[in-house]
Structures are given as C-alpha cells and as structure tokens.
Write a protein that binds this DNA or RNA. Structure first.
Length: 321
DNA sequence: AATGGGTCCAACCGCAGAGGA
DNA sequence: ATCCTCTGCGGTTGGACCCAT
C-alpha cells in the first residue's frame, strides 16, 4: 500500500554519475538554481529521478564542499558532536559546513567508530587499576553499535580520490564563481537570522539543547558572500568567523542544577564585531548520568582548538594504551 | 597473473515532516 | 481535515579498489 519508490520507474538510470550527467545537471542548476527537483529530469533529459539529482547536487556538485581527508580537528568535532547529538549527521554537518552529512556519516562509520572503539577498549583494559575510565564520556561508552574491528583503516585515508572525484571537485570550483554572483535561491535564509532564531529557541528552552535547536542543514542557508544587495548579509569572513568551534575559547560547565549539567560553549566573535548575540554557539543540558564527569579530558581536548596535537596523538592510539 | 577477502564510499532506499491545494 | 508533492534525513548496500596469498 505504500508509496512506490521514487526511483523505480522504467528507464530511470541508477548507479554512478558520469561526468556528462554532472555537467548537464550543473548547467541546469546554474541556469535555474537549485530546487524544484521534480522538474530537473524532465527539463534536462537526465535519466535520473529527481531525488538522485538532488542528492548528487547536495553531496557532490554543490560549491563549497571540501573533499579529501578529515583533519584531526574535524575528527575531534565529529566525535564530540556525535557524542552530544547522536547520529544526527545533518546537525553535525551544520557545524562543518564544508562537509556533507553523508561524508561525515561515512567517515564516522568507517573510521571514527573503530578508533573510538579501540580507544574505549584500551581504556577499559586500564580501568581496573585507575580511575581513568571515568574520563570516557558515557555517551561513548554507551554506544552499542561500535564495531570492534582493528584493521588499519588509516592506510586508506589517502586513497579516496579517484580521477572522477577530482573532476567533480573541479566542477564545484567552477560553480564557486557562479554562486558568488547568482541570485539568491529561495530557500536561502541568512545565517545570522538562523543563529538568532536558534539563540532565541535556546533562551526559550531554558538554554538547553535539543536536536531542533541545532541549526540543521546549514548549507542550505549558507549566506552568499559579496551579496549584491549588501544589507546585513555577512561576508564570507564573518560567516567563517562564527562557525562553531572555530575559535572556542570558553567552555563552561554549569553544575548548579543537581539533575543536569549544562555546558555552554562560547567563542570570540572578534571578526564579526559582535560578541553578544552569537557568542553562545552551543548550550547543552545533558542528563547527568551516574558517574559521568561533566567534562572529560577527552571532550576538553576535542573542544580545544590548540589541542590538535593531542587529537592526533590519541587518534593514533599509541601502544601506551 | 589470478583470486578471494576486506574495506571504503557514492548512491540508493524508505520514512517522516513541511507545506500547499 | 485530507491528500499530494517535495524535501530532508539516517540507514543500508553494491561495486570499485586494495592487498595478501
């Protein structure tokens, strides 16, 4: 009785996209802008369903997507945000605007889960003789789906790009210029506005975080740089400057409430010239679990921009553990 | 060189929510 | 209120690739 799958029509092509298809899709979007995906296959002659076109654009062809290896800092952010938010990849991706949720999800499933599992097992093995196990966030230790494979996934980190992957990167680069001058898509809203809304929600929600308070799909409302109308659109620099975690300089754990722990993460907005409205990037009210410390050293280094070396160190999981 | 197993990731699937008619 | 379309999201998978034998 359910709706038939959207892509099961006869004649609808599946499988990897070819460069020719990408060019057709990109050309069409250059002309009409993203959106109204239903009409894309019809108008372009692409033998793809609308959903496939949207996904291809969102995950690969859209300008501003960073491909290639994740930096240790990005890894740390993903690990921390995953611990905070769970598998809310879109929400996590909103804090890494250059990465897609699909990318982050894949990276988590293929790399980080294993690393964390190794880390956890290593910590478990030393838990008997010390209190170090308390440093593992409960959110990590509760993860049930972590698989325990210990193969050397790092060896494959650099293998990813195929020739065609680099060609899509080139298409994205080409589009960068277009995005700077094209009219604003209908679904684009100001990031500032969005953050204000999020902050308002946070205020109204007793400054506690919930999944809906996290800006989702930030890509969709990433402001255009050098927007023609000027107005209060942010510059690219402003936009980058308010990215959460980029300049974290203050992490406050509020334990005043005995039933919960609230962490408020703030950053300097030195570049934006405004340090009040957007300074509170992420406020979380975590349910306080039995022995979970409010801020483990692990979380701290994840949040500490200057701890990249430590991130790499722990990520490499030296035999010390 | 052949091949079999392991790994990775691009793409697909199915569901749910939003919004309009 | 209901239906339909569009879009977003998270989970899953198939094929390509790598490596050891």
């Amino acid at each position: 009785m359910g709706r038939p799958p959207c892509c099961d029509k006869v004649g609808v092509k599946k499988g990897p996209w070819t460069p020719e298809e990408d060019i057709i899709l990109v050309s069409y979007i250059q002309e009409h802008g993203p959106g109204n995906w239903r009409s894309v296959p019809t108008n372009t002659g692409l033998l793809r369903c609308s959903k496939s076109c949207r996904l291809r654009w969102t995950n690969y062809l859209r300008p501003g997507i960073k491909r290639g290896n994740f930096t240790p800092h990005e890894e740390g952010m993903i690990i921390h945000l995953q611990a905070l938010l769970g598998n809310k990849w879109a929400a996590i991706a909103s804090y890494l605007p250059q990465r897609t949720d699909n990318d982050i999800k894949n990276y988590w499933n293929t790399h980080l889960k294993k690393k964390l599992k190794k880390f956890q097992s290593a910590m478990d093995s030393t838990a008997q003789d010390s209190t170090t196990s308390q440093f593992i966030p409960k959110s990590f230790s509760d993860r049930k789906s972590l698989d325990f494979t210990t193969e050397s996934s790092n060896l494959r980190l650099s293998q990813t790009s195929t020739t065609y992957a680099s060609s899509t990167e080139n298409i994205s680069r080409l589009l960068e210029g277009w995005m700077r001058t094209s009219p604003k898509p209908s679904n684009t809203i100001l990031l500032k506005e969005k953050l204000d809304q999020d902050n308002d929600r946070l205020e109204n929600n007793d400054r506690r975080i919930c999944s809906s308070s996290v800006p989702t799909s930030l890509h969709c409302y990433r402001p255009k740089v050098e927007e023609e109308a000027g107005g209060d659109l942010m510059s690219h620099e402003d936009y980058e400057s308010i990215l959460p975690f980029e300049n974290l300089n203050n992490v406050v754990w509020d334990k005043s409430n005995s039933d919960s722990t609230t962490v408020t993460i703030t950053k300097d907005c030195q570049n934006s010239g405004s340090d009040e409205d957007h300074s509170t990037i992420l406020t979380e009210k975590k349910q306080k679990s039995e022995n979970t410390p409010p801020l483990s050293f692990l979380e701290k280094w994840l949040l500490d921009e200057n701890s990249t070396g430590q991130v790499e160190e722990i990520m490499e999981l030296s035999p010390i553990f």
